[in-house]
Simulated scan of single mutants.
Amino acid sequence: MKDIEKYLQEILGELIGVERLPENQLNTMPLYIYHAYNIYKTTLLNRAVILVENKNIDDFRISQADKHIELLRNAFNKPVVLVLAQLASYNRLRLIDKRINFIVPGKQLFILDLMMDLRESFAPYKKQNKENLTPSAQLIVLYHILNKNDLNAIKNLSFKDLAEKLGYSSMAITKAVENLKQLGLIEVQGLKEKRISFVYDRIDLWNKMKENGFYCDPVLKRVFVDEIPHDTKLLGSNESALAEYSDMNPSRQLFFAIEKNAYYALQKRNKLMNENKYEGRYCLEVWKYNPLTLAEVFNRHPKIVDPLSLFISFMEDSDERIQMALEQIEEKYLW
């Protein structure tokens, strides 16, 4: 608990002592609580608080933790704070949404019972300005970068052909091109049949987009379901895909990407079993552009999303495991 003591002292500016809960109090807890958590006590802002450290992060489930914390809160009549060594961004948002107190040492402290919400290092990539690529413009950029075997694939297409290739209307492509021009990434050539030409080569284009914060997160939202719809093609995404592109171990949670219009169609037909914001056997990531388009052009892992969209979806996650995996993606699939 030295790391949690140090973190709390840095945050609160006072000496914090964390002690293991006495055995006579631990013995009153159900065995499954005893085996799942290390339980400590401390004082924060003159309030007695119970800290519960999850012993096995790979077996962490929010719905289960919520029930356990409620049991401990009732048993001790004190605020209970979950302590986690690491926490994926999607789980962080779900904990906050469910109003569960938690601490990730060195990264975030959220204790609603004490009206505390301090965040420090969950955003390693800071956007430099408010200008962003639109989803359709980002699709064009990534299509070009990923298409190593034909660097003129985009340049040789008229706006109309580009719209057909990427599954957009001519108007949508015109707006995407205007977005790319405003960001200084392309030049438009031709009079009657206009085409685009990128100002930078593949690597410089990627670095320009990343360093200037032009990227947009391809994920619109995440929902959880208990069954995967069988009549819609889905691609592995998030940590399920990251494990395929890097040395990172796969997570217990299974993730799949689906284009937003396909998702809304399934929703309208009531094809999403037990859809909710918190937990389920599968997590569906609803994408702003069609993940199938870039998976097809990349064509090295046809069952998962392309590596660069995946990279962008994790760019503001400071988990060290994630950042190491992103470095591997750049080394393996960009250069």
Rank of each mutant, 00 (worst) to 15 (best):
A257N: 03
D204K: 15
L234Y: 09
L51V: 09
L72V: 02
V223C: 07
Q189Y: 12
S136A: 15
D117Y: 14
L118A: 06
A172W: 09
Q108A: 07
L166C: 09
L142Y: 03
F122N: 13
I69V: 14
R119N: 08
K268C: 01
A172P: 05
E331R: 15
G167D: 05
K127I: 00
R195E: 13
K165C: 08
S240P: 07
F102D: 01
Y278N: 11
R20I: 05
L51C: 04
L45W: 10
S170G: 11
K181E: 14
Y90P: 03
V223W: 05
W335Q: 10
N56I: 00
D201Y: 10
I96T: 10
E187I: 06
S63T: 11
N27A: 07
K98S: 08
D66K: 13
R281S: 03
N152F: 15
G106M: 05
S63H: 05
N156H: 12
I186F: 07
E70P: 00
K55H: 06
T43W: 03
I111Q: 01
E5G: 06
N299F: 04
P22N: 03
S63I: 10
Y34F: 06
E275S: 08
K78Y: 08
A88R: 15
S136P: 02
E211C: 04
D3Y: 08
Y264T: 07
N276G: 13
A85N: 13
K67V: 12
N74K: 15
F198G: 06
L142E: 06
N91E: 13
L292T: 00
L45K: 15
R92F: 01
E239D: 14
F314P: 00
L220K: 11
E14V: 01
I11W: 05
T42E: 06
I57D: 09
T42Q: 04
Q86I: 05
G106N: 13
I140K: 01
D97Y: 15
V223Y: 11
R92K: 13
P229D: 01
K107L: 02
G213W: 13
R202G: 01
C216I: 10
K192I: 04
A257L: 02
F76R: 08
P229V: 10
